[in-house]
Design a binder for these strands. Structure first.
Lengths: 110, 110
DNA sequence: GCAACACTTAAGTCATTACTTAAGTGTTTA
DNA sequence: TAAACACTTAAGTAATGACTTAAGTGTTGC
């Protein structure tokens, strides 16, 4: 449970606005490196490096055909990150409920 | 929509396993700095710096009473991060559905 | 009052990140 | 076949991150 390198890489990847923009583009369908680069005020090697981070995290996979590389989302890691947060929110809400119940139960005890 | 510094900070904060361990502890209820530090093989100033990152991201708030500082989760940012992912997953699933429908519709066209 | 306690600040180190420009490699098109 | 295209590699730089140790501040218990 501790030292989940997958989550490290996933959240790290999502922490950068350029990479989130790339993910945002890719959930709408596959794209080439150039297409991903177009809206980003950045050199192509810069985009490649972001892509490498996204691939290392497992959020994105890509395949080269001829001279163009096509990238697509791989949703498993995205789902895992979402679940990590959802579980913690559930714990937090459960605790709030217990707290509310406790306050309710002890409302007029003194 | 672009340049969402809140999400930058939130995902960045969650990218570190020590900070996730702290969040994990705090969703179960408030804790002092020392309590947060105990399971982390790290000096207290190290923990303080992680706490500063968590507070800067808005994931955690803390209050000092006497000589002890008590930390607690502030769930808004956690929820926002979860929603960012959930929206992208929804977009991705919607696209898969459209694609499936398209394949279904054109199944025996040739 | 003074020692233990619970942080807190400061400062230094080493690694990683987010870029850049320049110079490739292999593929396609005219 | 030569130029344009779509990356790709390499290398350099400035900033940020994740720690550390040492020294400090204010609070509490004896």
């Amino acid at each position: 449970m501790f030292r989940d390198a997958n989550l490290d890489l996933a959240f790290q990847a999502l922490a950068d606005p350029s990479r989130r923009a790339m993910v945002d583009r890719l959930v709408r369908g596959p794209a080439t490196v150039s297409e991903l680069a177009k809206p980003l005020a950045m050199s192509l090697p810069g985009v490649m490096q972001h892509l490498a981070v996204l691939e290392a995290s497992g959020l994105v996979i890509s395949e080269k055909i001829g001279r163009t590389r096509t990238c697509r989302i791989e949703p498993k890691v995205l789902t895992r990150a979402e679940h990590w947060i959802a579980e913690r929110r559930a714990l937090w809400e459960r605790r709030l409920d217990r707290l509310g119940q406790f306050l309710e139960d002890t409302k007029d005890e003194d």
